[in-house]
Design a protein around this nucleic acid. Sequence first.
DNA 1: AATTTTATTATGAATATACATAATAATCAT
DNA 2: ATGATTATTATGTATATTCATAATAAAATT
Lengths: 235, 235
Amino acid sequence: MRSYKDIHNILLERIKDGEWAPGSLVPSEADLALEFGCTRVTVNRAMQALADSGLIERRRKAGTRVVQRMTRNAVFEIQIVRHEIEQRGGSYKYLLIGRSEEVPPQKVRAEMGLSGEETLLHVLSLHFADGAPYQIEDRWISLETVPQARHEPFDTLSPNEWLLREIPYTNAEHVFRAARPEPKESDYLNLGEGEPVFVIERTTWLSDAAVTHVRLVHPADSFRLVTRDQHGTAL
Amino acid sequence: MRSYKDIHNILLERIKDGEWAPGSLVPSEADLALEFGCTRVTVNRAMQALADSGLIERRRKAGTRVVQRMTRNAVFEIQIVRHEIEQRGGSYKYLLIGRSEEVPPQKVRAEMGLSGEETLLHVLSLHFADGAPYQIEDRWISLETVPQARHEPFDTLSPNEWLLREIPYTNAEHVFRAARPEPKESDYLNLGEGEPVFVIERTTWLSDAAVTHVRLVHPADSFRLVTRDQHGTAL
DNA sequence: AATTTTATTATGAATATACATAATAATCAT
DNA sequence: ATGATTATTATGTATATTCATAATAAAATT
């Protein structure tokens, strides 16, 4: 028996092989159902999977076309820093530098979509891999969205780990860039003269409420971001 | 009438709100079908979508659990450099620097999984935004996988654009990092003293055959990589 | 008691069927 | 010819039904 996954794979092959060229119209569900000797529903399930993964575009009556993509997606994993390091067999250490309640600078307020001048929890900390500084975590946490944070000392458990463990979030925005470190950052990371840093800025939200904004600063020579593979199945 | 998408969203809310905690067992399809007044099939469709997006894990008889994720995904778009620039309202220019057939260095061969010492097409080019250098494209193209490339001059159309338009690929691997530019790169990009670069290395594959490997080098102050939002639908 | 067999249960998946909806094509009235 | 109306068609989705499969629990056998 042919499952919808089989049909999905067959259709995928046809697209990959160029048999169905980008932009071309593919046969209707009814025709394919006839060809594969199954019902239209089964073909539909397979086609929907292809549409979900962005390979085809479907419109009622107009039919289904192979997308003429000018863009593709890549996916990378965000995980706890400790795991990042331990996974590579490195030894991990965490150090809290400062913890206070302050009104964040304008830039952070803008990123988090804060209108007023409420105080947030500001936590500055350092993550070490094999004894060497690996990441500065400069974080602001909304006490309105996450009041529990007020009672967390963050002296042994990093905000990174606590948040990922305890607080759900719905979406995140990232900015990655290369930069010259600020003097203080250069100090914390123990950087050589002229060594650049890799900066990740992440803002996370729970529905419409900002949860946290963090600036992660890494020495350039010890950090690389790698994407996972694509197109295995859906996605 | 409640569609499977409605049910998907309702269940998603329950996970987001923590009503269904990470690691907890969620009600069976049959129970949920009863609750929502629809058939099990509809619930199944919704649950499958959630499973596809990695929020729940399902096993026969064992039931369905909310994943206890320590990692989350982020997605970014790979698009044609020209579009990247024009989308921001910038003016785009392309310049071919060199085109030749050579045996690539060991590092590139390793990335592409090449065993022998076959010659690849090597294309070096520059992309400008508003007159200023924006990206160095240092690319190797497999003439075995993409023989058509041999007849492409790449003097007005960049390999980036030609490949994305003409050649399908199934998956890609990326590495991002901050680095100090090599002297030649600093030269091409017209960089100031000590200015770092943002480097993207991408290898793409068509099934098991390597298509191309490219090193993209950007001035740090003109480049930032931004992720798209998550959790809209699947993924 | 330990092991094997059987029954139960939850998810996975296919089928036939019915109706909804959006886009296009064909028809008709002006 | 032009514009409005209707028919057609492809996809979207829901339902009832059926069977498959994997994991667990219960029962039976040794």
